[in-house]
Design a protein around this nucleic acid. Structure first.
Length: 424
RNA sequence: GCGAUCGUAGCUCAGUUGGUUAGAGCGCCGGUUUGUGGUACCGGAGGUCGCGGGUUCGAACCCCGUCGAUCGCCCCA
């Protein structure tokens, strides 16, 4: 180890992913790509950074989110830029600036890194990764249903169990506002008994009291006014169409009438896939319980200066999904070649290429003590170990198959292989 | 921003009430078992005990500070 030079540390909240974790991460992305095509969502690639105003205007200038939790910086021209903290705002901006209205209703999907300046904890990082699906320009509840069906199928194909769709409606703008006022009035009555945090929320973000983690708050939450009392006929019909569509599509769901969204642009459907209490999934995720979440954001486009445009979408953290995916094993059969004599090195190259071209994952062990290379190859846990050595001046190839079927398939390739190492 | 817990070898961790040259397993390197084998045995390299100060004859161990990590709170687009 060099003692004078110190390796630079990683940035707080970033991760270097390797091994089974990295395989699980890739599996999530691959599965998402496959499923998204089944629902005919089109792939989009979005910039990792935007003008700060793209996020500030869509999220709301004054919120903590914008003031404290974004990675913003000035570029050399003095422009304030921000590393994207979410996909939705950028996609909305692109929809407006590229004339994507012509494709409406536009179904798009993407994935990649996002950045939020937060204190890291289990399942929360400053650079994290999400998969994302949006339907822009669709006012119909059928869009919500299709989007949720896709999410449901994705989770199933990832093999994730013990997770349930929690569903709520926030109503249209009027319903939502009426509900909000009623909640404020209700909680004000008992303000003195609320937790300190919730007393603050009463002014800033009363809906958030509903998902307070404080025990004493929860006593009052149970008796709080429900959105259902304030839904307009239209909003109610919209929600009914979503739920009946989900039932028809075979998507299990549960009503969660205290599920809310903090930002004002959300309307109607709001949803989260949440681990069931006491499930393995819940234990694996710690305090970060939501696996996939989203909703309808009919009010967003206008805050970006566009025409009123209905839209609905969801996103899910790849890291969190990866934590719920078990060990992913490769389907590809694996051959390890031990080069027990350096004279056989070129033969190993020749043979390994034949095997790889034949569809076998192949690794060649050529380093370290020659007599230990076989053991090294075995420790890689291959399906077949091939040994290349010299015996009495003659090249020798032997095979040990830990899987008979793979063994004979590999033998078909090795039997046609002509060694060339007799030279010396 | 706040709180709790934790920093000993590349990795996972031991290290007894403070007491000589700081240990194990795995991994790595080398050597044996004159071998067709998922071994076993022997040896080796690798540590400013996160960093700085203090208490003490003596600190990995006790105290203070600091940095970092983890988990939680706030926030959650």
């Amino acid at each position: 180890m060099a003692k004078n030079t110190q390796a630079p540390p990683s940035i707080r909240g970033t991760q270097d992913v390797f091994g089974p974790q990295a395989e699980a991460f890739a599996f999530v992305v691959e599965t998402f790509e496959r499923v998204r095509k089944l629902y005919r969502f089109r792939r989009v690639e979005m910039p990792v950074f935007e003008r700060t105003e793209v996020f500030a205007r869509s999220i709301g200038e004054t919120t903590d989110i914008v003031s404290k939790e974004m990675y913003s910086f000035a570029d050399r021209g003095g422009e304030s830029l921000t590393l994207r903290p979410e996909f939705t705002a950028g996609i909305a901006r692109a929809y407006l600036t590229n004339g994507w209205q012509q494709h409406a209703p536009l179904k798009v999907a993407t994935h990649g890194p996002l950045f939020r300046y937060e204190r890291p904890q289990k399942g929360r990082y400053r650079q994290f990764h999400q998969i994302d699906a949006e339907v822009v320009g669709a006012a119909e509840p059928q869009a919500d249903v299709e989007l949720l069906a896709m999410a449901d199928q994705l989770l199933k194909e990832l093999g994730i169990t013990g997770v349930t769709l929690h569903l709520n409606t926030l109503g249209d703008a009027d319903s939502r506002e009426a509900w909000r006022s009623a909640l404020v009035a209700y909680f004000r009555e008992v303000a003195g008994e609320l937790s300190e945090e919730s007393q603050g929320r009463l002014e800033k973000n009363p809906l958030r009291i509903l998902d307070s983690k404080d025990r004493s708050d929860q006593r009052f939450v149970a008796g709080a006014p429900k959105i259902d009392q304030f839904l307009s006929d239209e909003a109610q019909r919209f929600f009914e169409q979503v739920t009946s569509g989900l039932d028809a599509a075979g998507v299990a769901w549960t009503r969660a009438d205290s599920l809310v969204r903090g930002l004002d642009y959300y309307r109607h459907t709001a949803f989260e896939f949440v681990p069931d209490e006491g499930s393995a999934a819940a234990a694996a995720l710690g305090a970060q319980s939501t696996v996939l979440g989203g909703g309808r954001y009919d009010g967003l486009m206008e805050s970006l200066g566009g025409p009123p445009t209905p839209a609905v979408g969801w996103a899910a953290g790849i890291e969190r999904l990866a934590m719920l995916v078990g060990e992913v094993q490769s389907e590809t059969k694996f051959v390890a070649i031990a080069v027990e004599d350096d004279l056989r090195s070129d033969d190993a190259f020749k043979l390994s290429q034949l095997l790889r071209q034949g569809g076998f994952a192949t690794e060649v062990v050529t380093s370290g003590s020659a007599r230990k290379r076989y053991d090294k190859a075995v420790k890689l846990k291959p399906d077949v170990v091939l040994s290349l050595s010299m015996q009495a001046g003659e090249p020798k190839l032997s095979a040990t198959a830990f899987d008979d079927e793979v063994g004979s398939a590999v033998a078909a390739i090795t039997s046609a292989f002509a060694p060339s190492a007799s030279r010396s």
